[in-house]
Computed example of a mutant assay.
Amino acid sequence: MATAGSSIRVKHSIPIDILDDLCSRFIINLPESERGDLVRICFQMELAHWFYLDYYCTDEVHNLHPCGIRDFAQHIFQHVPALREHLTNLDSVLEKWREYKQTVPTYGAILLDQELTHVLLVQSYWTKASWGFPKGKVNEGEEPWKCAAREVLEETGFDISKHISKNDYIEAIIHDQIVRLYIIGYIPRDTNFQPRTRNEIKACEWFPLADLPSNKKDMTPKVKMGVSPNAFFMVLPFVKRMRRWVAERNPKGRRTRHKSLGDLDLNKSKGKISQGLQNEITDYQQQNPVNPTPKYNSNPKHQPHPSTSKNTNGSARKERRNPKRQLFTPQNTQSANFSPVRKEQTPTQEPEEELFVAPSWANFKFDMQAILNCLN
Rank of each mutant, 00 (worst) to 15 (best):
A2C: 08
R9M: 13
K11T: 08
S13V: 13
D17S: 14
L19F: 03
N29V: 04
L30R: 01
E32H: 11
E34T: 06
R35M: 11
V39M: 04
R40P: 01
R40T: 08
C42T: 01
F43Q: 10
E46P: 03
L47H: 01
A48H: 02
D54V: 00
C57S: 10
V61Y: 15
G68C: 11
R70V: 14
A73R: 02
H75W: 00
Q78V: 04
H79C: 02
A82T: 08
R84P: 03
H86C: 07
H86W: 09
L87T: 15
N89E: 14
N89I: 09
L90E: 05
E95H: 12
W97Q: 03
E99S: 15
K101I: 00
T103N: 12
T103P: 00
P105S: 05
P105M: 05
Y107G: 01
Y107W: 06
G108C: 02
I110S: 05
I110T: 02
L116T: 02
V119H: 03
L121P: 00
L121N: 00
V122G: 01
Q123A: 14
W126N: 05
F133P: 00
F133W: 03
G136R: 05
V138E: 12
C147N: 10
A149D: 05
L153G: 01
T156C: 01
D159P: 04
D159E: 05
H163K: 15
H163G: 05
H163V: 01
N167T: 11
A172L: 10
A172P: 06
I173R: 12
I173F: 10
D176C: 04
V179R: 07
R180E: 02
L181P: 04
G185A: 08
P195F: 05
T197L: 13
E200D: 12
K202D: 08
F207G: 01
P213C: 03
S214W: 01
K216T: 09
P221S: 02
F232D: 04
F233A: 01
F233W: 03
M234F: 06
M242S: 00
R243E: 07
R244D: 15
L264R: 12
S269F: 08
G271Y: 02
S274C: 15
E280M: 13
Y284L: 15
P289M: 06
P289A: 11
N297Q: 12
S298E: 12
P300H: 13
P304C: 14
P304Q: 13
P306I: 09
S307D: 15
N311P: 02
S315Y: 12
A316K: 11
K318P: 09
R320A: 10
P323M: 07
K324I: 06
Q326M: 11
Q326A: 14
Q326I: 11
L327G: 04
L327C: 08
Q331C: 11
Q331T: 08
Q334M: 12
Q334K: 15
A336I: 10
A336C: 10
S339K: 15
S339R: 15
P340D: 03
E344K: 14
Q345A: 10
T346R: 14
E353L: 13
L355F: 01
P359S: 07
A362V: 07
F364R: 05
F366K: 14
M368L: 12
I371H: 06
L375E: 02
